[in-house]
Design a binder for these strands. Sequence first.
DNA 1: GCAGCGCATTAACCTATGACATAGGCTGCG
DNA 2: CGCAGCCTATGTCATAGGTTAATGCGCTGC
Lengths: 244, 244
Amino acid sequence: MSPTSSSDVLIRKLQSISDLREGDIDVLKDIQIQEKDFLANYDLVREGDRPVNSFVVLDGLLGSTKLTGDGKRQITSFFVAGDIPDLHGLHLSVMDCNFTTLTAARLGFMRHDALRAICEQHPRIATAFWRSTLIDAAIYREWVTNVGRREAYTRMAHILCELIFRLRSVGRIQDHVADLPITQAALGDALGLSTVHVNRMLQELRRRGLIATTGPRVQALDWPGLTRAGDFETTYLHQRNPAA
Amino acid sequence: MSPTSSSDVLIRKLQSISDLREGDIDVLKDIQIQEKDFLANYDLVREGDRPVNSFVVLDGLLGSTKLTGDGKRQITSFFVAGDIPDLHGLHLSVMDCNFTTLTAARLGFMRHDALRAICEQHPRIATAFWRSTLIDAAIYREWVTNVGRREAYTRMAHILCELIFRLRSVGRIQDHVADLPITQAALGDALGLSTVHVNRMLQELRRRGLIATTGPRVQALDWPGLTRAGDFETTYLHQRNPAA
DNA sequence: GCAGCGCATTAACCTATGACATAGGCTGCG
DNA sequence: CGCAGCCTATGTCATAGGTTAATGCGCTGC
């Protein structure tokens, strides 16, 4: 186990969205978590699978992805450290989407039967997990809106805001400088845009002085400006103690 | 209370997605449900609200909707009879979207504290409710994909498939003839398209013999053809006993 | 029986975005 | 050291879908 143990990541996340008591935390500390590393672009779960584990993200960036009949890919949400992407699988026996690493990632696996047992005996923990999936759903709603009704430039700014905000609120970045080895192709799949157009929009954001990019690193130079450009409000992320 | 009582609608829905025992059903029968009627285009819940009720749809069509900064509307999902649209509000104190009637509708309201008490004492019921919100999330995922990666024609066909399928699986329509007093403007808001283009796509579907429309009524003339045109698979709806 | 309204339809024109092609810069590897 | 594979960058051209506006049609209310 690493210095910050994997259950710490899980516990901090659940505390950031829900009200847990001492006893609950002790229970969570005892969950068996199996750590494992993955390369980028690895399908952890595929549509049609019936998983017996869920996993918490310890490091890296994941996405829930779907493929259309003619092979186009849509990323339907991002997942960062602390998130439990396929907790949905706990009560949806057959998966309806893939979960894919978008960067190299370290994950912690937890058995479904263990999680179910905990939920049955500790309603407050069950609620915390439930709430976690509800926040996922709220993010999906925002993405429908983002893709459906915002134009490419705003859409791009919006997704950068979300990523930076979420990474910051789990302490993974400082000062709006995100180390995001995410390709423009992946951004396109998240935004419903072509790679070419992603490139154009990033340039436009740089030209207007809102962001700077050095390699895979994205930096918000003007955070208020970026949020304005991206029509970004944080309510849909349902933080308990909203940071600035 | 009406001949088919409102708790029947709720119970049938939960049974269709989850495994309930006799005892659970008795508990559900005792839930206090307050019925009320609404006209079309009424905002039942607004972004920022802190609701103390959730409601089950007894009749009519609702949508979860969001407004962008420049006033464009996106419908992020539909809700039909049996659905509990804002069950999400049970554990997300502040709402991040609106719930709006898209047609005239009859709803049954249930108090949050009552629902919470039931969930705490009856884990199987809690799981059923949880699962209901997970299916909502799965639908949101599909909509991100639909709007992000399918072109207008396919997208239109897809959404009609979903509506017809869902109405059929709760016994609200026969033989793929849906009585849907939904405007083309609303369809546009659901698909991220302009009204004009919705009109064009509906015409194209009619021209190809896949659907017929008489006033507000939409009929699938060629269901297999329509599902093919719409790239429609039912897995994401997570029916327990998938009908044909 | 007519006024007014909401909605569907149609047409003409315009633009955001996609598709394709190519080049250049990394990085890893034999 | 040089080649291969990925990714970013750029330019040109094509098109799906948006915008605007005009028309019509079926309600409802008076």
